[in-house]
Design a protein around this nucleic acid. Structure first.
Length: 591
RNA sequence: GCCCUCGUAGUUCAACGGAUAGAACAAAAGUUUCCUAAACUUUAGAUCUAGGUUCGAUUCCUAGCGAGGGUACCA
């Protein structure tokens, strides 16, 4: 039983005994370092139930705890805070338990529970992945891992936006302005090649608009009447009609993109259990609209378009089907959500999508609820802030995007530069070094992005490359590597759990922090926030590093202390590895 | 216009409504006979403004200012 649980029971008993009240919801917090004690009960909230002076209530409870439990050795009351001192024996016991538990912190999924589906990435097939996708991918993947670690089955998915006018633009540009290049013939990644033609289309299109304007057209007309755009629109119509040639080209070029994405995903270390393709789902949802019309959830305007009125909920009216009967984004998402609950036995669904779509998901969830799906309130929009550059927002058409592959390559290069400067990798093969640079470079990038609260925007300065010191991935990786070194060199027998009479306060801090891992996972899962795991791990490492300074191992003649040091180190390393696993970050055995 | 999110040291990030708001980077100073100095120890530095709610507010409410996003047939 955890310390908090034990304390909760004991405090509950104290209150029952002295005040004849049955309470069991208390507020505990770690005692601030400047006060004596390990854990603190905040007395103020109790005043709602117990009348009296908070100091006195604290004294009463404290006295009871000291006299009636075997794990409270002392207490003191400051204002409304009851600071409780826990016995060393109890900490030793916790520690022994931790040592024995190899699966520490991680719950195994209950096989009877339904799964959680997590959607992330969901790219367009007309351009390569960029920095924004990187945040999306890292977040989605990490949240999936965290939910899994909290004891639920997880299905990772993405929906690939493989149809529509944008992909036709790339196809058209490839036909008109290319010479039949392929990824093989050019050596380019497929997504890059297709992306280049998307840019090419835009350039030529802009020329035609300029031409149109100089021919006397208004800007709007020039945009609408540009021959390229009309051709692209025709191509889309052909695609929808199933034109063999168009469909074949579409399949070929999309495959190039998928192959390219696959490489990027692999580099980032993310994966998916099932892919949905918009070309399969874009017709979904239309029948549901009819059902909604019958139910009176939707209404039809004179031009035939279908709407939902959400003004009572404080929102606007929203279109769910175009006048010509074609589906809009919302229609598809309604259909896809329903489809997913049909395809899989899932309990909830998490959408990892940027915060510019907050409104969309608010409306989507509301519509599904109004349509009567009981799982509608199990849907969650994992909304995250944009990644901005110092120059402002990234715009693919203006070339101000940070390409995902290039970014990773730069990070790896930086890791290499730093490592070589430190010169610690003698005796390593080139392959081993390269592998290590990848681990460190990616670790820096991933940690940098994941340590920030998802909903906040990130300002990313590519010129000032990411730090490798301080609250960073490499700092934590380094601690892990150093522990591995200790374990390699610790030749004496440290297998027997040690019992120390007087625990060093740094050791206690560390044990407390280690104890909090399970709780942190649960909290991170509930909040869909990898940042909690990241900051927890950093805290752990900080505490470990001070412990490391105060409990020497070499030159220490106290065998018990030496053994303690090794045992603690081992546990810390295990937690770092596990925690970083939840962030999708690898740890090096040496660095 | 209306709606949503965010505003914390020079910078990047923390803080279930709890005590004297924590770190890191940058700045200044120190610590290598000691298992990895990518470390550790010091010093200096912050809650956008004005009200309200209460034992207590960075956190909740109202208004303002500032940044970003959305806003009915793009996704």
């Amino acid at each position: 039983m955890s310390l908090q649980n034990k304390l909760q029971q004991a405090v509950s008993a104290a209150i029952l005994n002295h005040y004849q009240l049955s309470l069991n919801d208390f507020e505990f917090q770690d005692t601030r370092p400047d006060f004596e004690g390990d854990i603190t009960l905040v007395v103020f909230p109790l005043l709602r139930h117990i009348k009296g002076n908070p100091m006195q209530i604290g004294e009463t409870i404290g006295t009871y705890l000291k006299e009636n439990t075997d794990f409270v050795s002392d207490f003191n009351v400051v204002k409304g805070f009851l600071n409780i001192v826990i016995t060393d024996a109890f900490y030793s016991a916790i520690f022994h338990k931790m040592l024995a538990d190899d699966n520490f912190g991680i719950s195994n999924p209950n096989p009877d529970d339904k799964a959680v589906m997590v959607e992330y990435s969901s790219p367009n097939t007309n351009k390569p992945l960029h920095l924004g996708h990187v945040r999306n991918n890292l977040l989605g993947y990490s949240v999936a891992k965290i939910i899994e670690a909290s004891g639920k089955k997880v299905i990772k998915t993405q929906i690939i936006n493989d149809r529509g006018i944008h992909i036709c633009k790339s196809m058209l540009a490839w036909q008109k302005f290319g010479n039949g290049e392929t990824p093989t013939s050019t050596g380019l990644k497929g997504d890059k090649l297709v992306g280049n033609y998307y840019v090419k289309f835009d350039q030529e299109y802009k020329k035609q608009i300029a031409q149109g304007i100089s021919d006397g057209l208004s800007e709007d007309d020039a945009k609408k009447q540009a021959p390229l755009l009309i051709e692209a629109q025709n191509m889309l119509k052909k695609w929808e009609a199933g034109d063999a040639q168009v469909v074949s080209l579409w399949k070929t070029m999309n495959q190039w993109v998928y192959d390219g994405f696959e490489i990027s995903y692999k580099t980032l270390g993310v994966d998916f259990d099932i892919n949905y393709y918009e070309s399969n789902t874009y017709l979904l949802g239309k029948d549901v609209v009819q059902k909604g019309l019958d139910q009176g959830v939707f209404y039809k305007k004179e031009d035939g378009s279908v709407w939902i009125d959400l003004t009572e909920e404080g929102l606007d009216e929203k279109i769910v089907l175009r006048a010509d009967g074609t589906a809009v984004y919302m229609t598809q998402d309604i259909g896809t959500a329903i489809q997913r609950f049909k395809d899989y036995d899932i309990n909830s669904l998490v959408y990892t999508v940027g915060n510019e779509q907050d409104y969309h998901f608010k409306v989507l969830f509301l519509i599904l609820k109004k349509l009567g799906y009981d799982w509608a309130d199990k849907l969650y929009h994992l909304s995250y802030g944009m990644v901005d550059l110092p120059s402002g927002k990234m715009k693919s058409r203006e070339g101000t995007v940070v390409d995902a592959d290039e970014l990773v390559a730069e990070m790896v290069q930086t890791a290499k530069d730093i490592s070589e400067e430190l010169g610690k990798l003698e005796g390593y093969s080139t392959e081993e070094k390269e592998e290590l640079y990848k681990i460190i470079g990616l670790g820096a990038l991933k940690y940098f992005i994941l340590k920030v609260d998802p909903k906040k925007r990130i300002l990313f300065d590519p010129a000032a490359s990411i730090d490798f010191n301080g609250n960073t991935g490499p700092f934590i990786q380094y601690t892990y590597a150093r522990i591995q070194s200790i374990l390699r060199k610790a030749t004496f027998d440290y297998s027997q759990p040690v019992t120390l009479d007087a625990l060093n306060s740094k050791t206690k801090d560390l044990i407390k922090q280690l104890q909090g891992f399970t709780e942190t996972i649960a909290l991170a899962a509930a909040n869909h926030s990898p940042a909690l795991i990241a900051n927890y791990t950093y805290d752990l490492v900080k505490r470990y590093n001070t412990f490391y300074q105060t409990v020497p191992i070499l030159g220490n003649e106290n065998d018990e202390e030496k053994a303690l040091h090794v045992q603690v180190s081992q546990k810390v390393a295990q937690v770092i590895k596990t925690a970083f696993g939840l962030l999708g970050i690898n740890v090096p055995e040496r660095m």
